[in-house]
């Protein structure tokens, strides 16, 4: 058992993946000599060389396009997008090429590309540096989307994503990079595309992923003081969604709240609410409620705390659901 920050766990997971498979190549802006602005690739260029940890020009479309060509020729590129908002210059390649080539080639050309994106707010970094773009990618058939919340999931998840033959948008909760937890690197990890019940409860099912998992757990603890028993589920995988455990939970609790930082309208919460309603209609005691960012561009840093879902807003949704 080792105590690791989420960022260090990613670094160790990347190192392990590169040791295990010589076809793994890292590409990104300032990831080599500097080790990345969040130091996730720290030391890897020194140990694996400039050809396997590639400092690229500031050119996200070029990075993703180059990754497509590498993947076509049997390599496993891992692209670091420096900040969430910087993925949009690469959006064309991701949506028109990465997502579609496997189907277009009728399975002859897999696209084992991992697109690592530090996402979400909470570090006072304004728009383009604090966004939650997951819905754009989850909407696109051909991509898989996962979000890690803990050092253990970061360590194993990045290795599982790299080993996957499908293209994966790998979302890292940047404000949690420095948070520590014990990681047993010899453990057998859960499958990548599986949600996980983190805390059992009987009164309400609370769903979250990425940076909001910690907030959801805090809310459950606070609610306990008021005598409410909240079940918390870390969704972990956003495409495909793994909701069997959620359905089972909601059939017992009859109440469901979804939390994410991304704007509420047409966010992941909307899709989850639809599916839970379709599947658990007769068990529901209240509508599925969503807690998310407001439908605005990401705010300036001094207003960030008013924009992001926090303990109060999650507990308010719990109250509304319980009082319905």
């Amino acid at each position: 058992m080792t105590t690791l920050t989420l960022g260090k766990a990613l670094n160790m997971g990347l190192r392990k993946a590169m040791e295990d498979d010589p076809k793994v190549v890292l590409m990104g802006e300032d990831i080599g000599k500097l080790g990345g602005v969040f130091r996730i690739t720290d030391g890897l260029q020194k140990d694996f060389g400039e050809d396997r940890v590639v400092d690229t020009p500031l050119a996200e479309a070029g990075i993703l396009g180059t990754a497509v060509g590498l993947a076509m020729r049997g390599y496993r590129p891992v692209c670091e997008i420096q900040f969430d908002g910087f993925v949009f210059p690469a959006y064309n390649q991701i949506v028109t090429q990465v997502a579609k080539i496997h189907a277009r080639s009728r399975g002859r050309l897999p696209m084992p590309i991992v697109i690592r994106i530090p996402f979400g707010g909470g570090i006072g970094a304004v728009e383009h540096h604090s966004e939650s773009p997951e819905a754009y990618f989850a909407h696109t058939a051909g991509l898989k989307v996962v979000a890690v919340a803990t050092p253990a999931d970061a360590y194993f998840g990045i290795q599982q994503a790299i080993a996957s033959p499908d293209p994966i948008v790998f979302l890292e909760p940047k404000r949690r990079y420095w948070e520590k937890a014990d990681v047993d690197t010899d453990a057998t990890p859960d499958p990548l595309f599986r949600s996980r019940v983190l805390r059992a409860g009987d009164d309400l099912t609370l769903l979250a992923y990425g940076p909001m998992v910690k907030t959801a757990l805090q809310a459950a603890t606070a609610a306990e003081d008021e005598g409410r028993s909240i079940e918390v589920v870390d969704l972990r995988t956003l495409s495909p969604l793994d909701l069997d455990a959620v359905y089972e939970s909601v059939r017992r609790t009859g109440r469901c709240v979804v939390v994410h930082e991304a704007p509420t309208t047409l966010g992941l919460g909307a899709e989850i609410a639809a599916r839970v309603t379709e599947t658990c209609f007769h068990s529901l005691e209240a509508p599925v409620l969503r807690v998310g960012g407001y439908d605005t561009p990401y705010p300036p840093s001094k207003l960030e705390e008013d924009y992001l879902p926090d303990l109060d807003r999650v507990l308010d949704a719990v109250d509304r659901s319980m009082g319905f």
Binding site: G62, G65, T66, V68, G69, M72, R73, G74, Q93, T96
Partner: peptide, 16 residues
């Protein structure tokens, strides 16, 4: 769209 993909194929050629 094919331009950067060829750059990747060239990168692969150098690896190989």
């Amino acid at each position: 769209a094919g331009l950067p993909i060829a750059v990747g194929a060239a990168f692969a050629a150098r690896y190989r």
